[in-house]
Amino acid sequence: MSADGISRRAFAGGLAALALARGAGAQGYAGLGEKADGFAQVVPGKVFSFPADHGPHPEFRIEWWYLTANLVDSNGAPCGLQWTLFRQAAQPGPQGEGWANQQIWMAHAAVTRADTHRFSELFSRGGIGQAGVAATPFAAWIDDWEMKGTDRTDDRSLAPVTLKASGTDFSYALALEADHPVVLQGDGGFSRKSERGQASYYYSQPFFRARGSIAIDDKPVDVSGQAWMDREWSSQPLDADQTGWDWLSLHLSSGDKLMLYRLRQKDGRDYPFGNWIRADGSTRMIAGSDIQMSPKATVEVAGRKLPVEWQIAIPSRSFSIACKPLNPRAWMGTGFSYWEGPISFAGTHDGVGYLELTGY
């Protein structure tokens, strides 16, 4: 469905209080900074275990499985897609049965070309089998949207998997492979989000190779390219004075990967962080003091001015790039709205990636 055709991210009942995962208005982001009494807390030193940590963590309030893909179609035209499944617990405590289950699920799917951006959104209550995630064999689903493993899926890399979703005027299906294990973000998977200690558990699979098809207005085309999956869970990922974030996942033509974000605060200051992921899968954290992220151009979408072009520099790595969106109007007009779309970049390094803008 087109970006003009639906309104976005209103997470019925329990989700309205907490602007789930990547996108929201001010009320939603206030929810992300609310205290999380009764829920499990994110603390340093967690030892990740796979496949278990590919599955759900219902003792935490918020969780997501978030994939973006930078693709080229058979005509050589760039395009992108997003597939995201969110889980939120409406209240802490033992899991209820059936309709009494307190887990609420939401999913977003989108495809983006230079000339169009289409998206769709689904919701489900937990406990009835309509949505969920299983660690072994891996499967994440809501209705007929799914990310699904096979008997060949490796627990360390979460690959291979297949991916599919559809809206009223688009659909896609991908096969994803990867040769490297998943990458722990932050300090061994402990990803600090503020100076006051808010954090998430966070890992990524930035090495997916993608092949499949996208159909827009019932016109299918073969696609191939690169994909990046983020996994996070937390109970209070933001502080009360944080309003949103600017987030980038970058595929460098050298084979290296780069994750960057800055969390914006009400006082005008930012909390930036980065992780340089080498082509061999090894990582190096980048201090916030060494990250320069400067918006260079805005576009007005849905009554908001959004910084869709950026100049980014990391002086310690002699890194300086300019980023431009494939489609400046890649607005996710769901309940708690956000901007999410493919970008390209050039400068000391070049490549493609995804940009996410929330809280504007």
Rank of each mutant, 00 (worst) to 15 (best):
A313S: 14
G98N: 03
S318A: 14
H57C: 02
G274N: 02
F39R: 00
A302L: 00
F138P: 03
H251P: 03
K193S: 05
Y203V: 08
E177G: 11
I104F: 13
Y354W: 13
F11E: 13
W233K: 00
S74I: 14
S171P: 01
I343Q: 06
I277F: 07
H117G: 05
A346R: 14
S157I: 00
L15V: 11
G31E: 01
D350E: 15
P94W: 08
C323H: 01
F190I: 08
A17F: 00
G188N: 08
L85H: 07
S2V: 11
S124P: 08
G80N: 03
T358P: 06
D222P: 08
H57L: 02
P328H: 07
E97Y: 12
Q41P: 10
S157M: 12
Q91T: 14
F60D: 06
S320P: 15
L260W: 02
R284W: 06
A89N: 11
F138S: 00
S316V: 07
G186D: 02
F86I: 04
G129I: 01
L326C: 05
Q242K: 03
T150G: 00
Q226E: 11
W65D: 04
A109E: 02
D217F: 06
D53N: 13
M106H: 06
S282N: 09
G93A: 04
D241T: 01
A21Q: 15
S318V: 12
L163F: 00
S294D: 13
W247D: 00
A134I: 11
A159G: 00
R211D: 07
Q226R: 04
G23I: 00
G80R: 02
S124Q: 08
T298W: 08
G335A: 11
S253H: 10
M106Y: 10
G76A: 09
S282D: 12
P272D: 05
Y261N: 02
R152F: 10
V161I: 15
G5A: 14
Y360E: 14
A165N: 03
G244E: 08
Y338F: 08
A69F: 06
L258I: 14
A69C: 08
G25E: 12
N75C: 08
K324Y: 07
V301Y: 01
Q292G: 05
L184M: 09
